[in-house]
């Protein structure tokens, strides 16, 4: 079986400008932050980011990597709003395709199932339809109910972070919620999973019940071992959210240019190992 291990920088080297990148996790929970940091280090630009948004979206906006965000919300959970996303929206520097959260799931599922649309009730009557004139409704052939015809949200790339994976791309979450990471992988052409640690397949199997093996080999093209790779979002039970660090991020992002430059200089100007070292040093 293929050994799919690679580094975060190798993953990002396969991406190109203008791609549609789906990012797993949810808000400030189990985000593939090491992969996001690798994008920050790269020259990539003009990305369309599809996300249940958190600081992944914020950091990519801060670094000027984003052309458009497709999202249901962007939040840091314990802090209501991500300041960088907010700034990007208020300065008009990114396009926004804002959907109901369930519509986002539905669009990913339509892509995963290779369907032209899936019907959903969410969106009717709200401004979702008014703000996205490309959205259409569909009338039931079995009655006259009209529903939103949610089109597929096809991804060029999916980036997700799980607790454990083997070198072939089987992967397991250990926390309470899988979020939508399997769906992101199914909706994407190229799929990359980072994990806290790579385990042998037997070890991976022994870590819990089979139903928590969220990803299988068919769904993954590359495996990145990235301990602390979801930091500063939560990755339970390996670690919770680093609340002081998240506050420091939000404060630096909300303050003046110097504060942000200092944050970037301290944490984001080197490689992943430098980042993890700086985090440990405080």
């Amino acid at each position: 079986m293929r050994d799919k291990r690679m580094t975060a920088d190798e993953v990002v080297a396969t991406l190109s400008d203008g791609m549609t990148v789906g990012i797993g996790g949810w808000g400030s929970r189990r985000k593939p932050m090491a992969l996001v940091r690798a994008i920050l280090r790269s020259p990539l630009r003009e990305l369309t980011v599809v996300s249940y948004g958190g600081p992944d979206v914020g950091l990519l906006c801060a670094a000027g990597k984003v052309r458009e965000v497709v999202y249901g919300f962007v939040s840091l959970d314990s802090i209501a709003y991500d300041p960088w996303f907010r700034r990007a929206r208020e300065s008009g520097s990114v396009l926004a395709r804002e959907l109901d959260e369930g519509m986002l799931q539905c669009g990913l599922r339509a892509a995963a199932h290779r369907l032209p649309f899936l019907p959903i009730r969410a969106g009717l009557g709200s401004d979702v339809l008014a703000l996205d004139p490309s959205l259409r409704t569909v009338r039931s052939p079995y009655g006259d109910e009209e529903l939103v015809a949610m089109p597929p949200i096809a991804l060029d790339v999916a980036l997700v972070h799980l607790n454990r994976a083997d070198r072939h791309g089987n992967a397991r979450y250990l926390g309470p919620d899988p979020y939508f990471d399997d769906l992101f992988c199914l909706a994407a052409t190229r799929r990359f999973v980072s994990c806290e640690s790579v385990a042998d397949t037997e070890e991976l199997a022994a870590l819990g019940p089979p139903q928590a093996l969220l990803l299988n080999r068919m769904m993954v093209d590359g495996v990145v071992e990235a301990p602390g790779g979801a930091h500063f979002t939560s990755c339970v039970p390996d670690y919770g959210r680093d609340e002081p660090f998240q506050r420091a991020y939000a404060e630096a992002a909300s303050a003046d240019e110097d504060a942000w430059a200092a944050f970037v200089d301290h944490y984001l100007s080197g490689g992943e190992a430098d980042y993890q070292r700086a985090v440990r040093a405080g």
């Binding site: 948004g53 249901g72 804002e98 519509m103």
Partner: peptide
């Protein structure tokens, strides 16, 4: 900018 639509439409 606030949260976004979240699940409100659905």
């Amino acid at each position: 900018q606030l949260l976004g639509f979240r699940g409100a439409p659905g």
